Amino acid sequence: MKETFYNLITYFKNPVLEKDNNKDFNYRFQLFLKIFAVCILTGIIITPIFALLEELDWINMDSHEVEKMFKGMAKWKVLLIGTVVVPVIEELIFRAPITAFKKPKSFKYAFYFFAILFGFVHITNFEKNLSIFLLSPILVLPQILIGFYLGYIRVRLGLQWSMLLHGCYNGFFIALSFL
């Protein structure tokens, strides 16, 4: 796990368009599980920042747009949309294109651009006001970091793996919200 985390950090410093040649399913699934664990830990570590911002009355998480959208919807529909529909669409938009950038420098910029764009698109989940705008880099930090993780797994293992990781990540936090 520690090695996987260090590999991710090294990759993020200098992303390269290089597939992992090891096609063994068990190897790929183990790597997937390790990256999934890193994603979940990232989300859990960052969550107290939101609690602090809410405690300071700088944001109101009760008016989160996703909660409004899913309010009154059956749990199975929320799970279907959040773990299948949204991840597939977002991965096609934000991760599929990055491998089209073949030159190392353009790939690196595309990798960063799509991860950051993915994060900032999620600012639409918050009500629009000056506080949200000013705090936006903090508010979308989890999505930016997840965008990096999804980009890594997309390049190394393939688009279907990033879709699966995205769906599992969303599913984990949706399931927590049901508790």
Rank of each mutant, 00 (worst) to 15 (best):
C39I: 09
I40H: 08
L41R: 01
T42I: 08
T42M: 06
I45W: 00
T47M: 04
T47S: 15
P48R: 00
P48Q: 02
L53C: 08
E54G: 11
E55H: 15
E67W: 11
E67A: 12
E67P: 00
K68Y: 09
K68H: 13
M69A: 14
K71W: 06
G72T: 12
A74M: 11
V78C: 04
I81A: 11
I81Y: 04
T83Q: 04
T83V: 13
T83E: 02
T83P: 03
V84E: 00
V84Y: 04
V86M: 05
V86Q: 03
I89R: 00
E90W: 05
E91I: 07
A96L: 13
P97R: 01
T99L: 12
T99H: 06
A100G: 15
K103E: 13
P104C: 09
K105R: 12
Y109S: 15
A110H: 06
Y112Q: 02
F113L: 07
F114G: 01
F114H: 08
A115E: 01
L117S: 05
V121A: 10
H122F: 04
F126R: 00
K128N: 10
L135M: 01
S136E: 01
P137W: 05
P137Y: 09
I138D: 03
P142E: 06
Q143P: 05
L145Y: 03
L145P: 09
G147Y: 03
Y149V: 10
Y149E: 06
Y152D: 08
R154V: 14
V155Q: 02
R156F: 12
R156I: 11
G158R: 03
L159F: 09
L159A: 02
S162P: 11
L164K: 03
L165P: 04
H166D: 03
H166K: 09
H166A: 12
G167A: 10
G167Q: 01
C168G: 13
C168S: 14
Y169A: 10
N170H: 08
A175H: 07
L176F: 10
